[in-house]
Simulated scan of single mutants.
Amino acid sequence: MDTTSGTLDEALSRLHTSGPEFRGYLSNHGPMAVEAMVRNGQAHTVHRWLDAYADKLEDVPAARSRITDANWQQALGDPSRVTDWTRYFTGQVAERPWRELLAEWWPRLLPGIAGAATHPVIRVGHAVRSLLTEGEDAARLAEFAHALGYWGARHLPLPAAVHPTGSATPAEALSALPRIAERPATPLNGYEQLPGTPGWLSTTESLRLPDDPEAAREGLTALVRAATLNYADHGHGNGIMLVHAATAPNAALRTLPALPRDLWVSSFAVAWAAASAITTLYAADTPRPAPDASAATPEEVFERAVAHGNEHAIKFADTALDVAASSADGDTRALSAALNAVELIDPDD
Rank of each mutant, 00 (worst) to 15 (best):
T4M: 10
L12D: 02
S13A: 12
H16P: 07
L26S: 09
H29D: 05
H29R: 04
M37H: 09
H44L: 11
Y53K: 08
Y53M: 05
D55A: 15
D59I: 09
V60E: 15
V60H: 12
R64V: 12
Q74R: 15
L76G: 08
P79R: 06
W85C: 00
W85R: 03
R87F: 07
R96C: 06
L101C: 04
W105D: 09
P111R: 09
G112V: 05
A116I: 09
P120F: 07
R123W: 11
V128E: 05
V128R: 07
V128L: 09
R129Y: 03
D137A: 06
R140G: 05
F144I: 12
F144C: 13
F144L: 13
A147R: 10
R179N: 05
R183N: 00
A185R: 10
L188K: 12
E192W: 08
P198N: 01
T204C: 13
P210M: 06
E214G: 11
L220R: 04
A227D: 11
T228H: 07
T228C: 04
L229C: 11
A232T: 10
G235P: 14
H236W: 11
G239P: 12
G239S: 03
M241H: 12
L242T: 14
V243I: 02
R254P: 01
R261L: 02
L263V: 07
S266L: 08
V270K: 07
W272T: 02
S276I: 02
I278S: 03
L281S: 00
Y282T: 13
D285Y: 02
P287D: 00
A290E: 08
D292I: 08
S294D: 07
T297S: 14
P298G: 06
E299C: 00
E300L: 01
F302L: 07
V306H: 10
A307K: 13
F316C: 01
R333K: 03
S336D: 03
A338N: 11
A341N: 10
V342Y: 01
